[in-house]
Amino acid sequence: MTQVAGHPELRLDPDYESPEYRSSAKRAPRQPLVLLSDSLLDSGGPVFGETPVTLSDADLTLGPHGEAQGQRINVSGRILDSDGRPVAGQLVELWQANAAGRYRHAVDSHAAPLDPNFTGTGRCLTGPDGAYRFVTIAPGSYPWGNHPNAWRPAHLHFSVFGRLFTERLVTQMYFPGDPLLPFDPIFNSVRSQRDRERMVSSFDWDTTEEGWALGYRFDIVVTGHLATPFEEASGVRR
């Protein structure tokens, strides 16, 4: 378990040391972390309001030769800080596998077809209320060799920026009712069930479009703190 030097009451969830996730074995730090308190941190953070992001960057379904294959989905939500304030005008990046569970990436050797009309990558800037929206294709599950018969649950990779440098977050959005979730070492690297649930999107009628696309809602809450006090009594890592 990753320790914070001199602060046995602090815990990380997820913890860098996640033994069931094989790739962490040689990459997770083993020395205690040193606490960098707020007073020693530079304030502020990068701003991407001027970044050249166009509306079409948020629509992953339009390929060079036509429509991408698969179930079209609208994915929308808000980026908020832990006080509930919207993170406005900030960059959201998304990447994912295609409908067959294949990434357009050189190291992905899964025997599933690539889609010439799907790159699986998009981006947008949040609105004044912190809202973002992507139109994309429901990703497929895929095998990943972590353990026998290992399959990743369907997911979208999200990379978001808060107002503060320390609010930087990369996470994955999952889909409700996915039968693979209980078996996935990455999803379950988050030990608190309550916190794991924050990564599962909700099916949403409001953004489901007649004859066109299913809607999923996924709000993302960024925090400037990595380590949080471990509540011994309840066993909940907050």
């Binding site: 997820p14 509930g84 990046e93 990447w95 990558t121 990779h157 996470t171 809450v221």
Partner: peptide
């Protein structure tokens, strides 16, 4: 203060290049 529950972090995984190399 009834703060919002933060969204947990997850790994960037092996395919981060397709999402992050553009910038």
């Amino acid at each position: 203060e009834a703060r919002l529950i933060p969204t947990p972090s997850q790994t960037v995984g092996p395919y981060l290049r397709i999402g992050m190399e553009w910038m």
